Simulated scan of single mutants.
Amino acid sequence: MADVRVLMISNPNSTSQNDRLFRRVVPLLRQVDGLHLVSRFTHRPGHAEEMCRGLTRDDVDLVLAVGGDGTVNEVVNGLLGTVGGDRPDPRAVPAVAVIPTGSANVFARALGFPPDPVAATESLVDLLRRDLRRLICLGTWNDRWFAVNAGFGIDADVIADVDRTRDQGFAATPLRYLQVGVRAWYRAGRRPPHIDVDAVSAGGERIELTGVPLLLASNTNPWTFLGPLPVVTNPRNSFDQGLGLFGLTDIRGVRGAASVLHLVGFGHERFPASWINRRIVQFDDASSVTLSCPRPQQFQADGEFEGEMRRVHLASIPDALEVFAPEEAYPARHRNWGQILRDLVRIY
């Protein structure tokens, strides 16, 4: 390939980032002929967005995010700017690539990169040599962008609680997400959110819901990962179509608990799924979504807590960003209970 100028933006606070990793990753990148690498570290929340703001391909060909989904979110918002203005040509702003060093790394893994950062770098080196890139859809919420998912309800409560545990010095492990999720379900069961949903698909289909306690929108498939486990809510979803919506109409009682566990990957076998499917709402290829609540609810985007809001407008923007990505997506497989238990034992 021709000379390529790469700006590598690294979040030193991400889960698996350290000096030893860079001693392995940087030499791999330098094996690409014609690659010119400039490395910068973020110093505070929002710093990656500041560094990317206003960049064009006259400045740099590729922004390489070394971090998790939050770092990717900042890079995307910096490159594309505020939603609602003149949207930049995706081939006029730098392309984006990711080396995953966060806790979940949904964006990178959904694109098809392995979760190990060194293996992901090896894959990226091959992609750079072959110049394999593609355009993907992105989501928006109000005047900002998201790459992975966004939502009101229990998932946002979980993100807020995990942020608080991180501030106290605890790691964001899959087990901690599960523990926090159970606590969030218990709190929500006593005073469930009431979210009104009005969504339209790219094909003109419409869905209207009143008073659901949980609603999330995903731009990826799977919508998240529980350690090594891909969690699928909308099997048809992809980076090539609109948002996939997943909601629960009732979270009370034993079936409500089972429905919430379904959200984080448990109970996809025939019996549990049939037991709770009347409480589940799925809607694919949404192009426009309005979420509103009678009282402020916590809201998250790309795994980052964004505050409490009463109304949020979501949309899907086709061909919004050019990325380097493997040809085949990361396999999103449903797993049976035996596989889940074996994987959890392997994690802990």
Score class of each variant (00 low, 15 high):
residue 21 L to K: 06
residue 22 F to A: 14
residue 22 F to E: 14
residue 22 F to V: 11
residue 23 R to I: 03
residue 24 R to Y: 03
residue 25 V to D: 00
residue 26 V to S: 12
residue 26 V to E: 15
residue 27 P to I: 13
residue 27 P to C: 12
residue 28 L to I: 12
residue 30 R to H: 14
residue 30 R to Q: 15
residue 30 R to V: 04
residue 31 Q to Y: 03
residue 33 D to F: 02
residue 33 D to H: 10
residue 35 L to Y: 04
residue 35 L to E: 01
residue 35 L to K: 08
residue 36 H to C: 10
residue 37 L to I: 11
residue 37 L to E: 03
residue 38 V to S: 13
residue 38 V to Y: 00
residue 38 V to T: 15
residue 39 S to R: 15
residue 40 R to N: 11
residue 41 F to G: 08
residue 42 T to R: 00
residue 42 T to A: 06
residue 42 T to S: 06
residue 43 H to D: 14
residue 45 P to Y: 10
residue 45 P to A: 14
residue 45 P to V: 13
residue 46 G to A: 05
residue 46 G to L: 04
residue 46 G to Q: 06
residue 47 H to E: 00
residue 47 H to C: 00
residue 48 A to N: 09
residue 48 A to R: 11
residue 48 A to M: 01
residue 49 E to S: 13
residue 49 E to L: 13
residue 50 E to T: 15
residue 50 E to C: 03
residue 50 E to K: 14
residue 50 E to P: 01
residue 51 M to K: 12
residue 55 L to T: 14
residue 55 L to E: 13
residue 56 T to C: 04
residue 57 R to M: 06
residue 57 R to A: 07
residue 58 D to H: 15
residue 58 D to S: 15
residue 59 D to M: 11
residue 60 V to A: 10
residue 60 V to G: 10
residue 62 L to I: 10
residue 63 V to A: 04
residue 63 V to Q: 05
residue 64 L to I: 07
residue 64 L to F: 00
residue 64 L to Y: 02
residue 65 A to H: 10
residue 65 A to L: 07
residue 65 A to D: 07
residue 66 V to N: 15
residue 66 V to C: 15
residue 68 G to Y: 06
residue 69 D to H: 09
residue 70 G to D: 04
residue 70 G to A: 07
residue 71 T to M: 13
residue 73 N to A: 11
residue 74 E to N: 13
residue 75 V to S: 08
residue 75 V to N: 07
residue 75 V to G: 08
residue 75 V to L: 04
residue 76 V to M: 05
residue 76 V to C: 06
residue 77 N to D: 03
residue 77 N to A: 02
residue 78 G to R: 13
residue 78 G to P: 11
residue 79 L to T: 10
residue 79 L to P: 08
residue 80 L to D: 01
residue 80 L to A: 09
residue 80 L to G: 03
residue 81 G to A: 04
residue 81 G to Y: 01
residue 81 G to V: 05
residue 82 T to I: 13
residue 82 T to F: 02
residue 82 T to E: 15
residue 82 T to P: 07
residue 83 V to C: 02
residue 84 G to K: 05
residue 84 G to N: 02
residue 84 G to T: 07
residue 84 G to Y: 04
residue 85 G to N: 11
residue 85 G to M: 08
residue 85 G to C: 09
residue 86 D to W: 01
residue 86 D to G: 09
residue 86 D to N: 12
residue 88 P to N: 13
residue 88 P to E: 08
residue 88 P to D: 07
residue 89 D to E: 11
residue 89 D to K: 12
residue 89 D to F: 02
residue 90 P to F: 01
residue 90 P to A: 06
residue 91 R to I: 08
residue 91 R to E: 14
residue 91 R to H: 15
residue 91 R to G: 12
residue 92 A to W: 08
residue 92 A to D: 13
residue 93 V to L: 02
residue 93 V to S: 02
residue 93 V to E: 02
residue 94 P to R: 09
residue 94 P to D: 00
residue 95 A to K: 12
residue 95 A to Q: 05
residue 96 V to K: 12
residue 97 A to Q: 11
residue 98 V to N: 06
residue 98 V to D: 03
residue 99 I to A: 07
residue 99 I to S: 04
residue 100 P to E: 09
residue 102 G to W: 04
residue 102 G to R: 11
residue 103 S to G: 09
residue 103 S to I: 08
residue 104 A to E: 04
residue 104 A to R: 08
residue 104 A to W: 01
residue 106 V to H: 03
residue 107 F to N: 05
residue 107 F to S: 04
residue 108 A to N: 09
residue 109 R to C: 07
residue 109 R to M: 09
residue 110 A to I: 06
residue 110 A to D: 04
residue 111 L to H: 10
residue 112 G to K: 10
residue 112 G to E: 05
